[in-house]
Design a binder for these strands. Structure first.
Lengths: 151, 151
DNA sequence: CAGATATTGACAGGTACCTGTCCATTTGGT
DNA sequence: ACCAAATGGACAGGTACCTGTCAATATCTG
């Protein structure tokens, strides 16, 4: 009712589409980890879990790898530390820094988290085709590389 | 230094790429509106400005069109109302509802905001090619349509 | 037409990012 | 060796979304 203002195709706004897809991705990761039993891990924690090597890593480095600000990583690390997934120790090579390490528990989640991402991508591939998703990935990378402000 | 843990291609994570592109889009819209002199308008306001017709519209309908929750729209409308871009009047056909209308000032921004979106898309096209961006758009739509939870 | 159900829009509160600022420490130039 | 500049990480605070709940009104059903 009240459809007097018609619209054939409601102008699919690129901003909205990107927001929705990102939400889908994020929520899928969260759901997958919940189902794997890691109910206390939230999406932002992936920025730490996905990039922490067994040799330890600084918050600043995690920030660069995950492309988020240091503050976001700091908060995620604090939460993961409280939950027992990571621990921080002073960096012997830099007295300003602290190194983040996975605990035994963290070492158990990491593969699950990595697998979740892969599984979701495969799900998208099953829906749109592997080549399409590959094309999507490279398009996103291409724009980010070539766009100004990209660092 | 410390590059012992090498990585040729650092695994371009789809979630991160989507987040970064969405940030780019959002920030570009904000910058464009700033440059056009509308410094008090923020990205979330576009969800209202882009979809409000001269005949007025309910918050719930804006929520559906912009694919965000009612609460987000309500907040954006409140802010835009304080800034003098929209006004709310009771819906004569539904005593629960209120209709959102653009003020004269709001009618001035709307075309600028719409043009900003178009301009940014053209910028992306100039960087990746029009066909690539068209492909990106339809891929995003395709995934959203075919994915579960897409309502 | 009465009662169950759905919808509108508000209130409260949480999450994942962001910017700005600050201090300790390291690094780099002369 | 010094001092300037960069870097590591913390503190404070803001934005744009989210979920859950609720009262008032509307709509659907028997």
């Amino acid at each position: 009712m009240g459809n007097s203002t018609l619209m054939g195709s409601p102008t699919p706004n690129l901003g909205i589409l990107l927001r929705l897809l990102h939400q889908q991705w994020t929520q899928a990761i969260d759901t997958a980890l919940d189902e794997a039993g890691f109910v206390d891990i939230r999406p932002s924690h992936s920025n730490v879990l996905a990039f922490t090597p067994s040799s330890g890593i600084q918050v600043s480095e995690l920030s660069k790898l995950s492309k988020t600000r240091k503050q976001s990583i700091t908060q995620a690390v604090e939460e993961l530390e409280k939950l027992g997934y990571v621990e921080r120790r002073p960096d012997p090579r830099d007295k300003r820094g602290r190194l983040v390490f996975l605990t035994v528990r963290g070492q158990a989640v990491q593969p699950t988290a990595m697998a979740a991402g892969k599984r979701i991508q495969q799900n998208w591939e099953s829906v749109a085709g592997k080549e399409t998703i590959d094309g999507l990935t490279s398009t996103l990378q291409l724009i980010l590389e070539r766009l100004p402000r990209g660092e």
